[in-house]
Design a protein around this nucleic acid. Structure first.
Lengths: 199, 199
DNA sequence: GTCTATACGCCGATAGAC
DNA sequence: GTCTATCGGCGTATAGAC
């Protein structure tokens, strides 16, 4: 029983190592510049064969990463929506989350924001059809209904708000904005909210 | 004499065919999903060897595209700066240019906005160090000095303004905004300008 | 200067011993 | 279930005939 549990633990640990290594490398060099050899080295596995114990092929590694990231994003957004009523509060917390991720897990944000996922996961739904995105649109719609946000096409509202946020996050990720992320967060929020707020 | 001129003409024509075909394919499928075989087919050349008459290797095709696009962008921006004095006018015309490009040359905009150029041209300067970018920063700085634009870090101003513009252009390119580009242009301009304008 | 043939490396993936 | 050995194929690039 203990032994079995240990095996499971070990298995899932190496799986996580692979995912972590792949995430780091994909974020760093891109999917196509990363070989399975690179991944096995970074994951501390002896041969590429070991990878196939856990994933059907290279694509499935990226696919698992994609799913993981969007799942946890989805959960976070659900949580945020549950804890806050006003759209402005919800969006503020989402911005907070994204800035925190940019500081603490830049690889994740790199994957999300700069990688062109459709290029190596052509089957996957585009970002705009994912659950997190749909929920953000809902938040904006609710904000319009409540009179917090001016009356525009919700997708255009998304573009205005997250256009600013994402661009700033990208500049942070590439090091073009050299001060600490926190310095820019309040300005980013103000500018983005201002771009969609009523009046 | 005439013959020589004709040869030159033909040579540069096939070179253009290659560039045009490559641009289209890169924009469509990405650099790494495009093989020289694909390019030669799309360019109406018989063998991949023909490509090597005009370019040292695959990377140099992308590099030439990159240079061409940034050159013409650079020239356009120079022209715009010459013809307009106020920052608001200059930025307005740049937005106009970008929307026109998105309609008339979506492949170019795809290359500019969504392709991760550093992934296949690691030597090339990042976007933020290119001449067009530097000029845009100058426009923003001038706007701040003239009191048109509120007093912020110019790069942050860039992020606010072009974050909105670029995001909307991306959504147009991917078809997420289904109406005609012109419909969104005025709203995009208003939102973007508002995000950096004084008061 | 254009096509034929081909080299060659790299990488993803598998088969099979232990 | 982990490592050895290896395959097959694609894609870039070249050498050389015409």
């Amino acid at each position: 029983m203990d032994k079995e549990k240990e095996n499971i633990q070990i298995k899932s640990e190496t799986q996580d190592e692979i995912l972590l290594a792949a995430l780091k490398l994909f974020a760093e060099k891109g999917y196509f510049n990363t070989s399975l050899t690179d991944i096995k080295d970074a994951a501390g596995i002896k041969t590429t064969s070991g990878i196939y114990q856990h994933f059907k092929n290279k694509q499935m590694i990226a696919s698992a990463l994609y799913a993981n990231i969007f799942d946890s994003l989805n959960i976070s957004i659900d949580d945020i929506r549950r804890r806050n009523k006003k759209s402005s509060e919800q969006l503020h917390e989402i911005v907070d989350l994204l800035f925190r991720l940019t500081s603490e897990a830049p690889d994740v944000m790199q994957f999300l924001l700069v990688l062109k996922i459709h290029e190596f996961l052509p089957e996957e739904k585009p970002l705009l059809e994912t659950a997190p995105f749909a929920k953000i649109i809902k938040i904006i719609q609710a904000g319009i209904k409540a009179g917090e946000i001016r009356n525009i096409d919700p997708v255009l509202g998304y573009a205005c708000f997250f256009g600013i946020i994402n661009q700033i996050l990208c500049l942070l990720l590439t090091g073009a904005l050299d001060k600490k992320p926190e310095v820019y967060q309040s300005q980013a929020w103000l500018a983005a909210w201002n771009a969609i707020a009523k009046k």
